[in-house]
Design a protein around this nucleic acid. Structure first.
Length: 206
DNA sequence: ACGACGATCTGCT
DNA sequence: GCAGATCGTCGTA
């Protein structure tokens, strides 16, 4: 399905990471859509298919992980059919239990003063969950896999805020589009938008 | 083969 | 609020 439709549906869903230290469970609280070859903000703009963007052309449910600024990883979920490059960038997650939070904090290796320090931001959550490019191209629907997506809260019950995407000034007319979704007032979200109106997701939104 | 730059984060002012 | 880190990727030659 198109990333713009998949992004709000991913809110509340669980992300499960299996490492040698055990399993970490969290739920997605912020997601940003990168939709199709026409999106000037997307790595696959114009249908650009390179070694890096190749997995964006895979079928929905595949992980797209890349390195940014030479030091941070970003994790995306591919959402459409083969050869149609839609993906949703996961921008923030919330640990389900104190034990999950504790393991994530250990992986972060920096002082956690507020919830968003732990996993509020695409690079932070990747560090907190030990996600790197070794997971690029991974299927997220494999039981027992190192990283997987499982059903969690029904997004229809969540107050969802739709706001502009972050940090894509080069995207021209696509830069300001409200293609970022997050759970209202959630402390793990990377950036709140005071002007945006929250809504309850229905079949016809967005 | 080279150079510019990025879907970010951190620490310091 | 802002500079610096740090390297894979991609366009250009």
């Amino acid at each position: 399905m198109p990333a713009i439709k998949a992004a709000p549906l991913l809110l509340g869903q669980h992300l499960v990471r299996l490492t040698e230290d055990g399993e970490i469970r969290c739920r997605i609280v912020e997601a940003e859509s990168y939709g199709g070859a026409e999106d000037k903000g997307s790595h696959a703009y114009g249908g650009r298919r390179t070694n890096r963007t190749d997995v964006m052309f895979h079928t929905g449910g595949t992980a797209y992980v890349y390195l940014i600024y030479g030091m941070h990883h970003c994790f995306n979920i591919v959402t459409a059919e083969k050869n149609d490059p839609h993906a949703v960038l996961i921008r923030a997650v919330e640990p389900l239990t104190p034990r999950d939070a504790q393991l994530m904090a250990a992986y972060r290796g920096t002082a956690i003063r507020k919830p968003s320090d732990l996993s509020g931001g695409p690079g932070k959550l990747c560090r907190a969950l030990r996600i790197d490019r070794s997971l690029n191209g991974l299927r997220l629907d494999q039981p027992g896999g190192p990283l997987r997506l499982e059903s969690g809260d029904d997004p229809r019950s969540l107050p969802i805020v739709q706001a502009a995407r972050i940090n894509i000034p080069y995207a021209e007319e696509y830069a300001g589009l409200p293609w970022r979704f997050y759970i209202r007032d959630n402390p793990y979200v990377s950036a709140h938008d005071s002007k945006a109106e929250p809504f309850i997701w229905t079949e016809n939104r967005p």
